[in-house]
Computed example of a mutant assay.
Amino acid sequence: METTVNTHLSTVITPQELLNHWQGHRGLTRRVIEAFPEDDFFNYSIGGMRTFAEMVMELLGIAGPGIKEIATAETAQLLENVEHGNKKTKILELWDKATEDINTYWAQIKLEQFHETIKSFGQYEGTVWSSIFYFIDNEIHHRGQAYVYLRALNIEPPFFYER
């Protein structure tokens, strides 16, 4: 027997629950940033990977601008370098600003938009929901790399499940 599900009538997760899930990840990533000694945050790497600061700049270039682009339909430029003066406090300020931007623009996304096809940053095609999942998955991926760095530096990272 074949079962057909009308995706427009069934809901597994609400937009607010998805936002809460993402913000839980963002809070955890913020704690990972805080766990790094400042010099190691900007300079430490293993096996040719980027520093965690470089990875975080990528995350900053994607999250807030990506959600703003979804909400406003104005193509954003993908910028992965931000002025930080080698100060972790500046990166954390930018992280907190991006968190506020996500909350602000998220509220402007209509439920029916989640299944629309878009081109994030004018080049990456997918649905709104798949783009958001990419934003989240990319953050988790880079946070995993940061956990390896922290362990190599003999620093206990925050528990990954405490979101």
Rank of each mutant, 00 (worst) to 15 (best):
I67V: 15
G85R: 09
F42I: 12
E100N: 13
S10G: 10
G47E: 15
N138I: 07
M55K: 02
G144P: 05
A71F: 03
L111W: 09
I33P: 03
G64I: 04
Q113V: 04
I46Y: 14
F114A: 08
P37S: 11
N20L: 00
G47A: 15
E100W: 10
L150T: 04
Q123T: 11
Y44I: 11
I67H: 00
V12T: 10
L94N: 05
A73E: 10
F114N: 03
L28D: 07
Q16E: 13
N20S: 09
S131I: 12
A98K: 08
P37G: 11
I102A: 02
E125T: 09
N43F: 12
S120A: 15
A71D: 01
G47L: 15
E162D: 15
H84V: 11
P37E: 12
W129I: 15
L9N: 11
V148I: 14
Q113G: 03
I118T: 08
Y161S: 11
F42L: 13
P158S: 01
D39M: 13
A146H: 01
G66M: 05
A35C: 10
V148Q: 05
Q16N: 09
P158N: 02
K88H: 06
L19H: 06
W106C: 06
A98I: 08
T104N: 04
E162K: 15
T3W: 12
V148L: 09
M1T: 13
A146R: 02
K68Y: 05
I132N: 06
F41H: 06
G61Q: 07
T7Y: 14
Y161R: 11
E54A: 14
P157C: 02
T4P: 05
A71E: 06
